[in-house]
Design a protein around this nucleic acid. Structure first.
Lengths: 213, 213
DNA sequence: GTCTATAGGCCGATAGAC
DNA sequence: GTCTATCGGCCTATAGAC
């Protein structure tokens, strides 16, 4: 299937110095947000001069968008091959998606955080559409998967596929966002254990909490 | 029951002008984050001079913390009376908590957003502990509720109460965070309908997606 | 309590040498 | 491509009149 939109660059066309700047900028933007980082800080951390940054990127916003672009490219690309392919028996595909989606989020915490941050405070017209596209694509992918499994009869036909997809993505994103906070909450035994979390979420979503077992 | 910690002030002890400043600051900080708002902007929006802000609040950070404090007070207080009290039959309490918790989030979008933002990018040592306390208290409240209902037999004993509580809070927070984005996603019919969302989430969590119904 | 005026510093961005 | 030096502006915060 051909790419329709211009491919996200993710920075591999740039010189070594530019790549270094881009990576450092991504880290700092993910940590502190666009307004919370100065070009000076990026320059110091990257070991280059401020002017050099403006040589490789036309403005602070341009640098930020390049970093966001790279993050979106990373985040969208990995899920592609990982989660939809396991064409075993039907309901295992849902289980597999849940765990590998969370794995993707956790393996690229900076990219995930940058995208989450952009969804939270992105001003309309900057990179927000980019982040929203990544979100929408993930969401549609899993909705399709749910509908597929549903057609095979392993998910009740009365279930709203969009809702189930939304809850699955939400469960994973919420885990990612609060993984540090969870660690010092009492009585949570899945805090540092995403695999156990994924499995427990699947069991709960599959069978529900009502009953006597 | 006596308050142990010093009560969150929520701003009602302040003069009219100070309250006005505090409210405007809360709105702008919620929208753009701490670094994304200047004292000048707050002063203009509030119709006072910059110096007047520093008369009522000792610093920008002090103003921010006051706004965060107010938001935490609002967010923690409302849930108190609203959700745990309905002592009807057991599993209805879970349903009721789900919908009224979401209602609280949506009725105070600025406070909710300010707290969510602080959880995302708060530097350790500013107001992050405050926001974490609000989160932790909500979480413990619902965990207790789940355990309670579980003891009455309406929730399987095999379910991890912490996990169910985590998922419920997460489902609501995720809805809140993405309610604007959802509106232009295809195939979501619960986008502008939190009540329908709450009910559907309850049904799914209660009975699961597996089966033939 | 509220204002105008201003201090002192860091900001994003540019000029120009090498 | 990389640097030093610098510009004009906006920032937080303060001084001091009223």
């Amino acid at each position: 299937m051909a790419q329709i939109n211009p491919p996200l660059t993710s920075g591999e066309n740039r010189s070594g110095a530019a790549q270094n700047i881009l990576e450092v900028a991504g880290q700092l933007f993910a940590r502190s947000g666009y307004d919370g980082v100065s070009i000076n800080e990026i320059a110091n951390e990257a070991g280059v001069s401020k002017a050099n940054i403006f040589h490789h990127f036309k403005s602070k916003k341009g640098l930020y968008l390049a970093a966001l672009n790279k993050a979106c490219s990373l985040s969208a690309g990995v899920l592609e091959d990982n989660a939809v392919e396991s064409s075993d028996d039907s309901s295992d595909r849902v289980r597999h998606f849940l765990s590998s989606h969370l794995e993707v989020l956790l393996q690229q915490p900076l990219a995930t955080r940058l995208i989450q941050r952009e969804l939270l405070d992105g001003a309309e017209g900057n990179g927000k559409e980019l982040a929203e596209k990544v979100f929408a694509e993930t969401f549609e992918k899993i909705t399709d998967l749910v509908r597929d499994v549903q057609a095979q009869g392993a998910i009740k036909s009365s279930i709203d596929a969009s809702l189930l997809a939304f809850l699955m993505v939400g469960a994973n994103v919420f885990f990612f966002e609060n993984r540090d906070l969870m660690a010092h909450l009492p009585g949570i035994d899945f805090a540092g254990a995403p695999d156990r979390y994924s499995e427990a979420v699947f069991e709960l979503l599959a069978h529900g909490f009502e009953g006597q077992s």
